Lab assay of single mutants.
Amino acid sequence: STVKVRLGHLEVTLHNVSEEDVRELRELWKNGADEEDLRRWLEEWKK
């Protein structure tokens, strides 16, 4: 499914993403990950 995730002022649209992935991303964000960390996660996730 396609999910729009809003993290601060960063809005990311993920395609074919699982609930688990979204949860993981939100956890990262809650734990103080900055945009760099999130971008890195997204790069990994896209592979």
Rank of each mutant, 00 (worst) to 15 (best):
E11Q: 08
L10E: 13
V17G: 03
R26A: 13
N31Q: 12
V3Y: 01
V5H: 01
D21P: 01
E43I: 05
E44V: 04
L10Q: 11
V17T: 02
K4T: 15
E35I: 11
D21M: 14
V3I: 14
E43P: 01
E44A: 13
R26W: 14
L42S: 01
S1I: 15
S18C: 04
V12I: 14
L10W: 15
W45M: 09
L14H: 01
E24I: 15
E27L: 05
W41K: 02
L7S: 02
R6T: 13
L7P: 00
R23N: 15
N31S: 12
E24P: 02
E19P: 11
K46D: 10
S18Y: 04
E20I: 08
G8S: 05
K46Y: 15
S1C: 12
E43Y: 04
L28D: 01
S18L: 08
N16L: 05
D37S: 12
T2Y: 05
K47S: 11
E19G: 05
V22N: 03
S1M: 15
R23A: 13
E20P: 08
L14F: 04
E20A: 12
K30C: 07
E43R: 03
R26G: 10
T2P: 05
E19C: 07
K4G: 02
E44I: 07
D21V: 10
T13D: 04
K47C: 07
L42W: 10
V17S: 02
V5T: 01
K47Q: 11
D21Y: 13
G8M: 02
G8T: 04
R6I: 13
H9M: 12
L10Y: 13
E36Q: 13
W29V: 15
V12W: 03
R26E: 15
H15T: 11
L28V: 03
E36F: 06
A33Y: 07
W29Q: 15
W41L: 03
H15K: 07
L14A: 02
E19V: 10
G8H: 05
L28W: 07
L14I: 12
L42M: 07
L38E: 00
E43W: 03
D37M: 14
R39H: 08
K4V: 13
L42Y: 14
N31R: 07
E43K: 06
V5C: 02
R40F: 06
V5M: 08
V22Y: 14
V22I: 15
H9Y: 11
E19S: 10
E20L: 08
W41E: 00
L28I: 11
L7I: 15
E44W: 07
V12F: 11
S18K: 09
V22T: 04
R40A: 12
N16F: 07
R39I: 13
E43S: 05
L38K: 01
R26N: 15
K47N: 11
E36T: 10
E27T: 04
E11N: 11
W45A: 07
E35D: 10
V3Q: 04
N31D: 13
N31P: 09
L28Q: 04
E11D: 09
G32A: 05
W41G: 00
E44D: 14
G32C: 05
W41Y: 02
W29K: 13
S1Y: 10
V12S: 01
R23M: 12
L28A: 03
N16W: 05
S18I: 03
K30N: 14
E11H: 09
H15W: 04
A33R: 02
K46W: 15
R40V: 09
L14V: 05
E19A: 13
W45H: 13
E35W: 09
L25Y: 03
R23P: 01
E19D: 13
V22K: 07
L25H: 00
N31K: 09
D34T: 14
S18T: 12
R6Q: 11
L28N: 02
D37K: 10
N31C: 05
N16K: 05
L25F: 05
A33C: 06
S1E: 11
E11W: 10
H9F: 10
V17N: 01
A33V: 11
L7R: 02
E36D: 14
